[in-house]
Structure formats: structure tokens, C-alpha cells
Design a protein around this nucleic acid. Structure first.
Lengths: 329, 329
DNA sequence: CTGAAAGCGCTAACAT
DNA sequence: ATGTTAGCGCTTTCAG
């Protein structure tokens, strides 16, 4: 591989001039710029970015931490991030933390060791160190943790959940089961509060038996419904994500419960497959790609040195499809 | 951030000794090693990996090129790759080529510019340059391109497709529609050949009307079925992937066609959701995580300088679920 | 507008 | 076993 020295020799100029011709062409005379360009082409030179990064002490790379790369929810967010990162000349490293803070730490260390400039975390399962403020440029998307002094991009989880349950109430349900996510997770606490807000406004008593925990996977939705069905009688079900909703739908079908005639189901996220389920899934749409883009833009600003970056709340939307109907009398 | 110099000063040794203490502890006396470790801890030193990489001219990073990050098929493969990469001390960069060779080239250039050591490509949409052998350490997974001198890890597409269609014939079908992928793609050509092999062995005449092209997306499966249904009468359908199968299933349901009673459907891939569709999808299982691991292992060997790396074919499996039954008479 | 020279932080001969 | 020294390839003052 040719280096900048080779190009300089070939063009009959100094390495400094070659560097300038590439980095800031306006600082170089038209004539020499052309000489350099020619030499670059002729030699097939491609700058060693590692050397450049060392010199400028930046890596032009950001890291995305996802808790589970197999969870389809993150794909579009990643794509959104990738888009604006690339536009800004950044590469994107994807790190799967497998729901462990140890792995998350490994990825955060990439910044310390100068392999990355900043982090976008799609999980709140992060080392506690960051509680007392971290020097690491970082933004969190979707999830958050009260007390973490980190800019976040997310939705109004409480309001969105209320919206979903309001809809079920509107069409006549009052026995509404709920499959939650892991309740250590603040967004799950919020969604549960939203569910409760909704019932309370109609003075419907809360029943702890209406809840079963899942972990956001298909499988957990399936088994949570099986448990729930044992001890709670319902005409509708609200699930904290689409994957669990699909799992629950399968369980119901297997038990001979007709959806939506005997059981209405509402999901959360609006994954790609949500309109291809049978019946099609009514759900709360999170603008995944937007969330990714916004998070990336926020990080870009931080990397450019702007301090005061706020949390942003992006809007959601209830998508009414055919997995719900009025309860049969 | 403290540098190796600071640590050296603190420990009262030379920078070389600090470096040795970290890289090859056995070359350093017990006593000084402890001094160094202490100094490292006290200063909070974390080595600048960029500098190290420059010096050693390697980046300990590999790049995965995926044609479409939103296609769920790739998630588990990526996870498999990530696992063995991490075990071998490599980071993983994920690049979405959005089905363009230009973007793919951008990612391949990361190797030239020393930002990455090697590539695993999950797409065959690559610059033609690599036809005449490339110096870039690279392996291809799932897809391949005849004439590319690159080690590949993939399945027997032709045999697997035949297997799927054989099954449909076995249970009594003979009018079998087929939703293919883009036919420029060699694996699609193979799968189509497998379909034909299957019919030919029973001397069933081939009918070009049985085919419609899709692009592997839900949406394309839906619309391909709508078109196919116009001009071809069938009792069974073979789709080149699960996402299209689900799209087709939705289209059939919408047309009032009962699955499987009036239409049996077989997919391909065994995505996570395949056993949560309604009815559950019979499909060809690709061992996605294994494919990823094998590809990564192959690349690791290449990076360690071993030349003769062969193509590997990993086995598939027909998973019989409830989306198929004998045709009604 | 251009060149000379000084490093970025680290590792690896080569000495001792 | 440890220290000295010379870069890896690039950017960026500082002079001219």
C-alpha cells in the first residue's frame, strides 16, 4: 500500500502539501492540487485512517449498544442511526450487550481507548458509573433510567399505553389482561402506569391478577398468556410489545379462543410483521427510524461540543387493525 | 487521559516495560509487573488502541456487509459472527449496503484504509473487481457468486428447495405455485432448479406460469401471490423465504382462501416468527447462527494466514408445521 | 502557497 | 530483565 510519502515523491511536493490537497483543497494552488490528484490516482493511494485518527485523536466511529440483536425492534432504529451517521462521516459499530452490563461496559470502553467517539445505547442496562455523569459522549434511545444524566430520545410510554387501553375501553371491554415486560425496566413501569391511568379514569378497580410478566420475546408472550388464562378471565389483552402479542395470539388460538371475537389483542411497537399477522395486529406505532435519526443527530451535536442537549419525546400513534372488536355479549 | 508515559513515570520504569507488562507479562519480573499494575490502576490508564493499531498495522476489527439490515434473516447470523469474533479479540462493524455495490465498496475500503482487517459479506452484490481475486481477507455467507474466488459458507439451496417441494408432492399436491426471489441472484436460480428437479422426477410438466418473482419482503410476497392467483390455479405454494410466505398467507386469507385447507404453504429460512404465524409455517430451516459462526471462523483462519480455506456447506432441515395438508379432493 | 519538522501513543528491535 | 531508540502514517504548527 502506498503511503502519503509515495504520493508526495510522485507529485514532486512535500507530504504536507499532499495532506493539504486532500483535507483542505482551498489552501493549495490549483496547479499543485491537480498534480497531487494525479499522483493519488496513479499510485492508488488510500489514506491510512488509523494514522489520521491517531494524529487527530478521533475515530469518526460511533457505537450502538443493543441489548439483543435478534430483537427485531432494533433493526429499523439501527438503520436510522446508520443513515445520519454516514451522512456526517461517521462509521457505526454495532454491539450486542446480550442484556449484560459487563458487555455494555466493554463497548463503552471503546470510547476510552479512542476506538470510538461516542455511544448510542438502546438499553438502560448500563454500568452504574454513569450515574454520576460520564465524560463519554452518549445518548440513550427508547429506554431510560431515572437519574442517569444522559440525553434520551424516547416516546411517552405512559401516555401511549393509556391510549391503547383507552381504545379497548372505548369499544366496550372492561376485563383487560396485560402482559408486561420486565418490571425492573422503567419503560415497563411507565406503561403499566398508563394502563392503570386508563382504568382509573372510569373507576374500574385494578386487579393485580390481570398482569403477567414477559421478557419481550415471542416465547414469553406465549407462556405468559397461558399463565394469565389460568387465573384471569378477560375479553381483551394489552401486550407491551408486538412479539409477545404474537406469542399470546398463538397461545389463544391453541386454546381455541378466537381472536378477535373472544379476545381482542393490542400490541406495542408496530414491527414490520404486525400487519401480516392473522388477524392483523392493532398496535401502538413507534417511529423507529425517526428515533434512530434523532438519537444520532443528538449525538452528532454533542460530538460537536454543544452542551445543552435535551431529552426528546417523539410521538406515537395508535394503529387500529383487525385484532380487536367489541366484546361479545 | 493518561498515556503509557504517565504510567511509566508513576511506576518508575520505562514505557517499554509498561508495554511488555501488559502485552507479554512473562517477559517481565514479578516485582516490576506488580509495580506497573499498580500504576495502571492508580492512573486509570487505558491504552490508546488506535496508536497500538497503527504501530502493529492491524485493527482487530471485521466488517459485516448486509444488504438490508431490516431483513430479519440476518440478525441471528450477525449474532453468530459477533460471538466468535469477540472470542478472538475482534470487534465487529456492521455495514448496511442497502443492496448497492457502491455502499459495499465503501465498506470494503475500510480494509484498504486499515480500519478493518477483514470482511464477511452476506450479499453477493459486490464490486466486480473481486472477480480477479482480491487481496482483501474476505468470506461470503449465504450468498455466492459463481466465479468469485472467495470462500463461502452456505447451504445446498438446490437440494433444500427440492426437499421442500418433494414434501408437497408427497402429501399429494401437483399444482404448486412458486414465489421466487430476484432471479439475478444465484441462490434463487438454485432454488428454482431444485423446484424443477422435484417435479421432473415425477414427470410433472413444468409450467412457467407457476412462478412469480418477489424481492424477499413481506410486501412482495403479498403482491406476488395476488398476481399468481390471477393466472395460476394451485393447491400449494412454495416461497423462497418466510417473509414472502407470510405476505402470501395474508393475501390468501384476504381472498378467502383457507390455509392450509385450500392452500398449503412452505417457506424458507425458519425465522423466529415462523412458528408464531397462524397457521404455523412449514419451512426449510437454515442454521443461521451456525452459518455466522462458521463464516467467522473461516475468516479468523484467513487472518491468521492460512491460505487453503474451502467452501463449506451447512445442512438444512425441513420443519413440518401446520401450514400444509393434503389437497382437498 | 509550500516545506521542514515535530509529534499523536504505542510497540519492537536492539542494546545493555 | 529492562532501557534506548526508532519509527507506524498522518496532520499541523511554524517559517519562509
Amino acid at each position: 500500500m502506498p503511503t502519503i510519502k509515495d504520493v508526495a515523491k510522485l507529485a514532486g511536493v512535500s507530504t504536507a502539501t499532499v495532506s493539504r490537497a486532500m483535507m483542505s483543497p482551498e489552501k493549495v494552488s490549483e496547479k499543485t492540487r491537480l498534480k497531487v490528484e494525479l499522483a493519488v490516482a496513479e499510485s492508488g493511494f488510500s489514506p491510512n485512517v488509523i494514522a489520521r485518527n491517531l494524529r487527530r485523536s478521533e475515530s469518526k466511529t460511533i457505537v450502538i449498544i443493543v441489548p439483543d440483536i435478534a430483537n427485531m425492534f432494533f433493526a429499523s432504529i439501527v438503520r436510522g442511526i446508520q443513515q445520519v451517521a454516514l451522512q456526517n462521516g461517521y462509521k457505526v459499530l454495532l454491539g450486542d450487550s446480550i442484556h449484560t452490563v459487563e458487555q455494555a461496559k466493554v463497548y463503552m470502553d471503546l470510547v476510552r481507548s479512542k476506538q470510538a467517539d461516542g455511544i448510542i445505547s438502546l438499553t438502560a442496562e448500563l454500568p452504574m458509573e454513569i450515574r454520576q455523569g460520564t465524560e463519554i459522549p452518549m445518548v440513550m434511545a427508547c429506554e431510560y433510567f431515572p437519574g442517569f444524566p444522559i440525553p434520551t430520545v424516547r416516546i411517552d410510554n405512559r401516555g401511549s399505553a393509556k391510549r391503547a387501553v383507552d381504545y379497548l375501553l372505548d369499544i366496550g371491554h372492561s376485563q383487560i389482561g396485560c402482559i408486561t415486560g420486565p418490571m425492573e425496566n422503567p419503560i415497563c413501569v411507565d406503561r403499566k402506569a398508563g394502563y392503570q391511568d386508563s382504568l382509573q379514569q372510569l373507576n374500574i378497580p385494578l386487579d393485580e391478577a390481570a398482569f403477567e410478566d414477559g421478557d419481550f420475546s415471542f416465547q414469553s408472550g406465549y407462556s405468559a398468556f397461558m399463565r394469565l388464562h389460568e387465573h384471569y378471565s378477560m375479553t381483551a389483552l394489552f401486550c407491551f410489545n408486538d412479539m409477545m402479542a404474537l406469542g399470546a395470539m398463538k397461545a389463544a388460538t391453541q386454546l381455541g379462543i378466537k381472536v378477535p371475537q373472544q379476545l381482542s389483542i393490542v400490541g406495542f411497537d408496530d414491527l414490520l410483521f404486525a400487519e401480516y399477522t392473522n388477524p392483523e395486529l392493532t398496535t401502538i406505532r413507534q417511529p423507529q427510524e425517526d428515533i434512530g435519526k434523532t438519537a444520532a443527530n443528538t449525538l452528532m451535536k454533542i460530538l460537536q461540543g454543544s452542551k445543552a442537549s435535551q431529552d426528546t419525546i417523539v410521538p406515537t400513534q395508535l394503529l387500529v387493525r383487525s385484532s380487536c372488536c367489541a366484546p361479545s355479549k
